[in-house]
Amino acid sequence: MNQLHNAFTLFVSLLVEAMPFLLLGVILSSVLLVWVDERKLIKVLPKNPLLGAFMGSCIGFIFPVCECGNVPVARRFLMQGIPTSVAVGFLLAAPTLNPVVIWSTWIAFRGQPEIVLFRILGSLAIATIVGTVFSVQPDPKVLLQPRLSQRLKYLQEVAQPQTTAVKSPLLQTGTFFLGASPQGNMPLEAVATQMPETIVPAPQKTTKEKFAALLLNISQELRELGAVLIFGSAIAALIQVFVPREVVLSLGQGTVTSIIAMMLLAAIVSICSTVDSFFALSFASTFTTGSLLAFLIFGPMIDIKAVGLMLSIFKPRFILYFFMLAGQLTFILALGYSYFA
């Protein structure tokens, strides 16, 4: 009973810690939807896969979201037609390459500025490499869950070709396509299956209408992603309580085993990237610097909460490849740092 109480306490703490950042990500994605013309955004992005992945990795400086908030923003990017390499680069790098996380890491490791530097450079390099790898698949629809794939297919094949002279009618929420027909809002299920013959472009909205659309989209995405976040936080809390901490710590004696142990710990504890540097600092006396670096790089990219949120967007096979590539590159980077730095 005491363990269940501890698990519930951890569950609530994880949820309270993560929910504000999920809300921030949802708000940013909704702002992109309502106020940003996606055609202009796509025009300024480089077409080269490597440069596109690099640019996507650097967008985190503009959108300071953690691993809970980057998923809805990445989803919006994909729905806007942004290349896969850009979205994947952002998905990996945004939780680390933003001013809030960089500042918190500097505060925690001000006596070891090399950790701050290598965390930034390592995250940027891994995100760029993984984003470039996934650019081999130029069509993101095969990576997405069927529901999102239908949305994107509709935008590409029906909506956009008929609205080249007007503002592109993006999906206005996660469930409805607002103003897509003379009758008003159209459920996406109907849009994907019926494919109406005529699509009336959405008129220019007033400021009041934009704020209404903003609030509607925020509430819809919170319902979709919040449920997944709750489920992921519950799993993370149960693992932290019922898997003895000594089991993980006992693996941290060697160079290789300590890196693997800290990567596993990062995935299990699912600590927000804005505060994970202080958690890593508590292990500085028992773990190698390379393993601490692996924790700081790998944790924001892949943890239980993030995987749960990604499953609402991507197919499991994509997440598996995503996980394996990021994990291998993080391990190589941390091992190289341990032997050569």
Rank of each mutant, 00 (worst) to 15 (best):
M19D: 08
Q145T: 10
L251P: 01
L214S: 03
F283G: 07
A234T: 06
E17V: 11
L320D: 05
V26L: 06
A341Q: 09
Y154C: 00
T286W: 05
V228T: 15
G60Y: 02
W106P: 03
F314G: 07
E197Q: 09
T96Y: 02
I319C: 10
T132D: 07
L188M: 12
F134S: 07
I199Q: 00
F63H: 02
D303A: 04
F287K: 06
C66G: 12
T105A: 13
M186H: 12
A284Y: 13
M55Y: 11
A294N: 10
I59V: 14
C272I: 09
F177K: 05
P138L: 03
T163P: 03
I319L: 13
V247R: 10
R119V: 04
F242K: 06
A234F: 13
G232T: 11
F211K: 09
L78A: 00
C66T: 13
K315F: 08
E157M: 05
F54P: 06
V307R: 03
P146N: 04
A165H: 12
S338G: 02
A266R: 00
T255M: 14
R76H: 00
Q328R: 06
S123D: 07
S233L: 07
A334R: 04
F278Q: 12
K167S: 14
S181Q: 14
A236C: 09
L281E: 15
F314Q: 09
A165W: 10
M1G: 14
M263V: 09
L251S: 04
L152W: 00
E221N: 12
L329H: 06
A159I: 02
F231E: 09
K208H: 11
T330D: 01
I235M: 04
Q150K: 04
L225G: 05
I82L: 05
T198N: 10
A190W: 04
I302C: 05
L148R: 06
S250H: 08
E197C: 06
E157P: 01
L293H: 02
I239T: 03
C66S: 14
I120V: 15
V307P: 02
A192K: 00
L45G: 02
L188V: 12
F295D: 00
M301T: 05
Q183S: 14
I271N: 01
A284F: 12
L148H: 10
N6P: 05
L14N: 08
Q328A: 14
T255K: 11
S233G: 09
L10M: 12
S219C: 09
L51F: 11
R110L: 11
G122P: 01
G290T: 08
L292I: 15
I120L: 14
Q156D: 07
M19G: 08
N48L: 06
I199T: 01
I260K: 09
P182H: 01
A284N: 13
A237Q: 10
V256L: 15
Q137C: 14
L215R: 12
V26G: 03
L320I: 15
A74W: 01
P113I: 06
V86W: 00
L216S: 12
F54A: 15
Q240L: 11
F295C: 00
L45H: 01
K47H: 07
E17Q: 15
G111E: 13
L249H: 05
R110D: 10
P182A: 07
I268T: 12
M79S: 00
V247G: 01
